[in-house]
């Protein structure tokens, strides 16, 4: 049975916009509730001092909530799988005009500098703002620069897939080693020294896990970017 008439979308949007008035008044009224005195974040900040890591957000993402990061990596993997299934084709499309010789040379000079910056942001993630996600996406944007400036560049498929598999498997293996040694999945079995706070080699397994996350995110983003740009026009 088919709909006899369509939904009046302008009426619905009128209701939606008039909802602003009601909800803002409710929110202003609700702000008279007093704050709780201590939240979960305060307790985690106190616990953070025993891990020896200077960046509190890194410990929360990798150590105190490490299982959520494992789930998020699974979601990224499934999204990359879906994009690869929909858009991949064996005959790549040709960009119609070839670029200038100066553009190709300049982008080949910029590419290692961008990769070096991405690796720096990844490795110093526990001492300054940054980490695995940010560094991985910076590496993928370096690959993007080469893809759009040179029409004969292809990402080496076998190496990227091998890197991604290695990173995904070793994350779970580190968690299982923590389960064997300390009776805690993703436990910190390298026993960090508190007096090392601020040095590069500190924090136990936290920088190691973040580097593994960075490798996985970087390789997945490179594959997504390549599937989006190069696609057969005639299929």
């Amino acid at each position: 049975m088919s709909l006899k008439r369509e939904l009046p979308t302008s009426t619905i949007s009128g209701f939606a916009l008039s909802g602003i008035l009601v909800l803002t008044i409710l929110n202003i009224l609700l702000h008279n509730i007093p704050h709780p005195v201590t939240t979960a974040g305060d307790k985690l900040l106190k616990l953070n001092a025993s891990e020896g890591v200077a960046n509190a957000v890194t410990t929360v993402v990798v150590y105190f909530r490490g299982f959520d990061t494992l789930g998020e990596i699974a979601v990224l993997f499934i999204a990359s799988l879906g994009i690869g299934l929909m858009l991949h084709s064996n005959t790549q499309c040709e960009i119609k005009t070839d670029s200038n010789f100066m553009l190709k040379t300049a982008s080949k000079i910029l590419f290692p500098i961008i990769i070096l910056f991405g690796i720096y942001v990844m490795i110093y993630g526990h001492l300054s703002p940054g980490g695995g996600f940010q560094g991985g996406v910076i590496i993928a944007s370096g690959v993007l620069l080469l893809l759009i400036s040179d029409r004969s560049f292809e990402v080496p498929h076998a190496m990227i897939v091998a890197l991604e598999t290695f990173a995904g498997v070793s994350y779970v293996l580190i968690g299982l080693i923590g389960l064997l040694v300390l009776d805690k999945f993703l436990g910190n079995f390298l026993s960090p020294d508190i007096s090392d706070m601020g040095l590069l080699f500190s924090g136990g397994i936290i920088p190691i896990i973040y580097i593994i996350v960075g490798i996985k995110v970087g390789s997945e983003m490179s594959l997504i970017v390549q599937n989006l740009i190069k696609r057969d026009e005639n299929v």
Binding site: N55, P129, Q134, S141, V225
Partner: peptide, 19 residues
């Protein structure tokens, strides 16, 4: 919030706009 600003800058300017 420097971590969140860095992530939104890289992803919002790079991957999301590219898509």
């Amino acid at each position: 919030a420097p971590d969140v600003a860095l992530t939104e800058a890289v992803i919002g300017a790079g991957i999301s706009s590219l898509t």
